[in-house]
């Protein structure tokens, strides 16, 4: 990983359109049981046309982009801003780009966008890339 520099792009992670099954599974697995994500009747009672995806599902997808690129122990920090709702059937793509590299540590710019161009999440991460990785159980 010696060729990583400002401008290096991470291999994008393209997801399938988000189904109701995905939202039901994520509600159970994540512990976020907010009915706005899984119950059409509740969503309609709140004036929405349909349910929408959990923001933390998109953050988890972006996390996969990171751990596909480096072992998780090399991630020092990871932050996102939730910019727009992901509607049901939305098709997210996760992207990331290195914005700077200093002393073996890369700062990444991250985003999740939908097929219609909507950016649903923006974020950043700080990742060790100099080959030194955190001990899997303790400090670096």
């Amino acid at each position: 990983m010696t060729d990583i520099q400002a401008g290096t792009e991470l291999p994008p992670l393209e997801l399938k359109p988000i189904s109701r099954t995905t939202l039901a599974l994520f509600a159970g697995a994540s512990g976020d049981h907010n009915p706005m994500h899984i119950d059409l009747d509740v969503a309609r009672s709140a004036g929405l046309d349909d349910v929408f995806a959990h923001g933390m599902l998109s953050m988890a997808y972006l996390g996969r982009l990171l751990t596909n690129w480096v072992p998780q122990g090399q991630i020092r920090s990871y932050r996102v801003r939730f910019a727009a709702i992901t509607p049901i059937h939305g098709k997210p793509t996760c992207t990331g780009k290195v914005v700077s590299v200093e002393e073996g540590v890369a700062t990444l710019e991250l985003a999740v966008t939908l097929a219609d161009g909507t950016t649903t999440l923006t974020g950043d991460a700080v990742v060790e890339i100099d080959g030194e990785r955190l001990d899997t159980h303790g400090k670096a």
Partner: peptide
Amino acid sequence: LRRVLHGEQSFTYHSMAH
């Protein structure tokens, strides 16, 4: 609670958990 949105989320990691 109906007026609440999750605006940002961040994590700073010091070690892995298993």
